[in-house]
Design a protein around this nucleic acid. Structure first.
Lengths: 223, 223
DNA sequence: GTTGCGACTTTGACTAATCAAAATCAACAA
DNA sequence: TTGTTGATTTTGATTAGTCAAAGTCGCAAC
């Protein structure tokens, strides 16, 4: 059994790898997301490499091995299923489930997880629109159709919110309050690159203006 | 935040204290239930005493302080609510939830627990008939009416099963298969102290013979 | 080329939790 | 009293995970 710490390192390496050049994660970046000093990350990664869970090239970076990826996907799967379960079955708030899942993902066994999965009807996406890795095998290449960032949309575009790429409670509460949840359809009214602001309108005609960095966290499906 | 280890020690001291002479738990007993060598228990208890969570008299035993009891009750409450939740909401088997709850009890926050409690309708007993401590204050003196051990009943007694004092999966599966679950009404047909065997009959007339030690694990309410 | 800087790695030290084994104590029997 | 015994405590060592701070490396700028 990998320790909670090992599971967390593998998960973070997996998540960083998704958006890393060459799928190689630097020690600095890993240390940052793990909230440890760089020396600690180096030491841990060395021991993960000895266990065959990652391949590590000093002064270059770390990447998951096949086995490491398998474990990481398991953690991510537990995390995302738990998030959805907390929202759907226990009626908890979208904005607070991330932190809860952060602890529960390490305590859910292979007996409990299938029960949760069944209760939820074998879902494919968590409340933020992040794909839930399948129990066996690799996740589907891209979740479903090519997603683009809302900040890349132009005035007149009609889009469907697919994924919120931020786990910060304040941002999620804001998004929830203004209907920026996966599944919502929006029309882009304006995207002023000079002012760095983007205005969208929802089905009820309510409009909302976002800064570029906020809009950048919202992934949409064109259509 | 107390560590998982500290929570486990406090919980076990609490549980042992319930059935200990003078509410004082010996190091040998504590080491046994914690599956550590006695020296480890001594060291841990010393540090718990320094944190004010227990009072410790060397070569005599340990007992929870007010604060230690508060924490222990929290752990027990989480454990028992989780057990019931796994059975009722996730449809898991009575016999397997104890081990699951053993890990989950440390990962359930004060945000998740009330949601579970609400979902279950503020229950008072877990699937084994053990009382669930209230969120605040001490638990009620005795669960509900005086319970006696099934092994102390005499032929002719009519009793209601209230509590199963064993967490072993094999025993619980056996109990479940034969309807020995909290709430079932039984009639004692015979209690042969020489043969060490006790025979009961359920509402459908099916009878079952138990050894004295098995019967001793079943607490019933006379009536 | 050399120099500097920033990222990375190493080293030494610390804490929590554990075990093995030696030392100690309390209590009972002779 | 004096042993003896079994439980308990102490001591010394180990492992996982961490930090602070010193040392090293690679690369871009000059």
């Amino acid at each position: 059994m990998p320790s909670v710490t090992v599971e967390d390192y593998l998960k973070q390496i997996y998540l960083e790898q998704q958006s890393a050049p060459g799928g190689l994660v630097s020690m600095g970046r890993l240390a940052e997301v793990m909230h440890v000093v760089p020396g600690t990350a180096t030491a841990m990664v060395k021991s993960l490499a000895e266990s065959g869970l990652v391949s590590y090239e000093p002064r270059s970076g770390v990447r998951l091995s096949r086995g490491g990826e398998r474990l990481a996907l398991g953690v991510v799967r537990r995390h995302r299923l738990v998030e959805l379960f907390l929202v759907r079955t226990l009626g908890m708030d979208w904005s607070e489930v991330h932190d809860e899942a952060e602890r529960l993902e390490h305590a859910i066994s292979d007996k409990v997880l299938p029960a949760i999965d069944r209760t939820l009807g074998y879902p494919q996406f968590d409340p933020h629109g992040d794909p839930i890795p399948p129990a066996h095998g690799r996740p589907a290449a891209t979740s479903a159709g090519a997603l683009v960032s809302l900040s890349d949309c132009r005035a007149g575009d009609q889009v469907r919110v697919s994924r919120i790429m931020d786990q910060d409670a304040a941002f999620l509460q804001f998004a929830d309050r203004h209907g920026l949840t996966p599944g919502t359809t929006l029309t882009v009214d304006a995207n002023d690159t000079v002012a760095d602001a983007l205005t969208v309108r929802d089905g009820d005609g309510r409009s909302l203006t976002l800064g570029a960095s906020a809009a950048g966290k919202i992934q949409v499906e064109p259509g």
